[in-house]
Design a protein around this nucleic acid. Structure first.
Lengths: 192, 192
DNA sequence: CTCGATGATGTTAGTGACTAACATTCTATC
DNA sequence: GATAGAATGTTAGTCACTAACATCATCGAG
């Protein structure tokens, strides 16, 4: 459990980092500058964030998705199971601060390095979803499960990106559902 | 057009780099070592490869895909168009050296840094495919086109990864088609 | 209150990827 | 063989990131 003091340092570092990066850009903001502005040394920065990237890429999506996919098991093909599982989570998504998500993703999209990091982050999610799609809990997922997981997660990532970069005043959740509809058109429609 | 001398230096650097990296691992092979083993200075290395990653990540898939997608236009939904366009390329895929592809991907999958780079590479492909899916050549692709492109490209990437990491003696092309089948089940079947 | 333990932070010194500026050496062609 | 232009080298730097060790803050036990 992180102490109050440590938590405060971490928050301060992240807040200062985002501010500086928005002002001057990611590449032209050094860790040294962030640390100095937060009143600590660069070592303290790296004790809280393993890389410079990670101060921006605090992905709010990765956890809890796999569980929902595992719950939505049925005899449908892998892609449908993945999409419907994810849809269940995404439909009642309550984001504490949509604007902060948007700000972060915008920063991320502005730097090739960070964009790479964003996609790399999804690898873990894909893995978890693929595992949840596998028939037995012990068995390795096969190619169809992996592909379905990759595609569904890519759809979500794409939606987040599109929503953040466009001037889209709707809710992120709506866009996410739309994205899943592309892969699983019948899943959300109300026909029989 | 690169001169013969330059081409040879580049080839030597890449060959030496892959050999050293296979022997000692990516992280524990420095650019200095690669350059020295190739008989040049580290500056020469960076003149041919913009980053250390790029000596491994010479993606053979990215180009030429978008064109095929644009050609496969019809009134189908975006996902089907994307998959069928890509299938057309992938079906007659002739790889000069499948084993080298496998070796490279294996190296890539062994290092988080390189794995991130691999996914980052696909961003450009996604962008191109999405553009090819857009209705007018001038118009920006919308969310459905972007999602379809992201999903289809993710399917291919997943297939390459699975084929390279498993002991799969079949052809890569077969796996790629299988992956596309997950997203577009009817596309390859021979029913009406 | 003091002592000591534990956790948070700092200092210093390094490695390695990558860049800029400039010097040098090839290589082709006249 | 002189010379222009491409290919390469040297040097000196910046920045992300790490290891080892020193210091400081906080808090409970005596």
């Amino acid at each position: 459990m992180p102490s109050i003091r440590a938590q405060r340092t971490r928050d301060r570092l992240q807040e200062v980092a985002l501010r500086l990066i928005v002002e001057r850009g990611y590449e032209r903001t050094t860790v040294e500058q962030i640390a100095a502005a937060a009143g600590v040394s660069h070592m303290t920065f790296f004790r809280y964030f393993p890389t410079k990237e990670s101060v921006v890429l605090d992905d709010p999506f990765d956890p809890t998705l796999a569980a929902a996919v595992a719950a939505a098991s049925s005899d449908l093909p892998a892609l449908q199971r993945a999409c419907r599982g994810l849809r269940a989570v995404v439909e009642h998504l309550e984001l504490p601060d949509q604007e902060q998500v948007r700000a972060r993703v915008r920063i991320g999209a502005g730097s090739p390095t960070l964009l790479a990091g964003m996609w790399a982050n999804t690898v873990a999610t894909q893995e978890a979803v693929a595992q949840a799609l596998a028939p037995g809990l012990e068995s390795e997922p096969g190619l169809p499960e992996r592909v379905a997981a990759a595609a569904a997660v890519a759809a979500l990532t794409t939606a987040v990106l599109a929503w953040s970069l466009g001037e889209d005043n709707g809710s992120l959740a709506g866009r996410l559902v739309q994205a899943l509809d592309v892969l699983d058109p019948e899943g959300g429609d109300d026909d029989a």
